[in-house]
């Protein structure tokens, strides 16, 4: 008898694979052991070869379904194709990235399959064949372990950058499968244009360049603006900088401003007063650059550089090109 399948639904991000997919494959392999077979499911156009971006992460199988309509397919059309695959292959569990696409398709599929879906997970494990998904609630103040004991497949969306993708040496088998594409005429994707930065405020930016009193010169702010553009993020400031004409209260990070938890925050010239720290310490990756090596910001940082903010920023910008 073949092993039950653990699926990772591959997601396209423009002409590439969304990094979360690779992270999920690595995690799934760790979970699967000898018990499950890790299968990446990839819906792509006939001339696409996105599977090439998945093989290095070593899933047991990459199952490709090709149809030129997939790149512009709607959520319901994707969910319909996936439902046909689920019916054909009966996977034990299905993992999606908790991206906007993943969070839109997964619940649509869940409703078709009438099964359980746990959203935005931060951890996964198996108890025998039961998937135990850890999801945060109440703004990450509470963690819940959630299972779906009596329905299959088990489904979860997983927060991007929760796991680290690790290339392996193993070879993946690429297979093809077919489904019937059922077009839904009532909804059409009319256009899709790449945008560097979809964030409109510091509160919804996934990358933040934060400036404080030690990085307040107009030249530094200009450099920071460029850096934020390159990262696809926004500038945020600590309270003293809200007095500058270029910033308002809306740009402020901290207790009396925005509480943010971006994937990446780079703090320049911010010492890290308590009121500031509570507004950003739940960010996923925290970088701090400050001239004072005893600044409290280093206590919450993953990466720290003791030195001049402007000099470091200039060097960083230079190496981005």
């Amino acid at each position: 008898m073949s092993k039950p399948e653990l699926w990772v639904i591959a997601e396209r991000r423009l002409d590439h694979i969304e990094p979360t997919t690779q992270q999920l494959i690595t995690k799934a392999k760790g979970l699967a052991g000898d018990q499950f077979s890790v299968v990446a499911i990839l819906l792509e156009a006939t001339n696409d070869h996105l599977e090439n971006e998945l093989t290095a992460y070593g899933p047991d199988e990459i199952r490709v379904v090709r149809d030129d309509r997939f790149p512009t397919a709607t959520d319901a059309e994707h969910a319909d194709a996936l439902q046909q695959l689920v019916t054909a292959y009966q996977p034990n569990s299905i993992l999606f990235g908790a991206t906007i696409t993943g969070r839109s398709i997964a619940p649509r599929l869940q409703a078709k399959l009438q099964t359980g879906l746990t959203a935005d997970c931060l951890d996964l494990r198996f108890d025998d064949e039961t998937l135990v998904a850890t999801k945060p609630s109440y703004g990450d103040n509470i963690m819940c372990e959630i299972i779906c004991p009596d329905h299959r497949p088990q489904m979860a969306t997983v927060r991007p950058n929760t796991f680290v993708a690790a290339p392996t040496t193993g070879d993946a088998t690429v297979t093809t499968a077919t489904v019937t594409f059922h077009p839904v005429d009532r909804l059409q994707v009319k256009a899709a244009t790449p945008v560097v930065n979809t964030a409109t405020t510091v509160g919804d930016a996934s990358r933040v360049v934060a400036l404080g009193r030690g990085a307040a010169s107009s030249a530094t702010i200009d450099s920071a603006t460029k850096l934020a553009e390159k990262l696809g993020g926004r500038i945020g400031v600590s309270r003293p900088l809200t007095d500058q004409d270029r910033f308002t209260h809306d740009d402020q990070i901290g207790q009396s401003g925005n509480t943010i938890h971006p994937e990446l925050i780079i703090n320049f010239g911010i010492s890290g007063a308590v009121q500031y720290l509570v507004g950003m310490q739940d960010s996923q990756t925290i970088v701090a650059v400050n001239a004072d090596e005893n600044a409290p910001i280093f206590d919450v940082a993953d990466y720290g550089y003791v030195g001049d903010a402007q000099a470091f920023m200039t060097a960083l910008l230079g190496q981005f090109n």
């Binding site: 359980g116 963690m143 372990e145 959630i146 299972i147 004991p149 993953d302 720290g304």
Partner: peptide, 24 residues
């Protein structure tokens, strides 16, 4: 279909500082 089996307060994230060294 889903059941919450456990609810707990997360451990505060322990961060280990990796120093960036040398010239800027």
């Amino acid at each position: 279909p889903t059941i919450v089996t456990k609810v707990y307060a997360p451990e505060p994230v322990k961060r280990e500082l990796t120093p960036l060294t040398g010239t800027p």
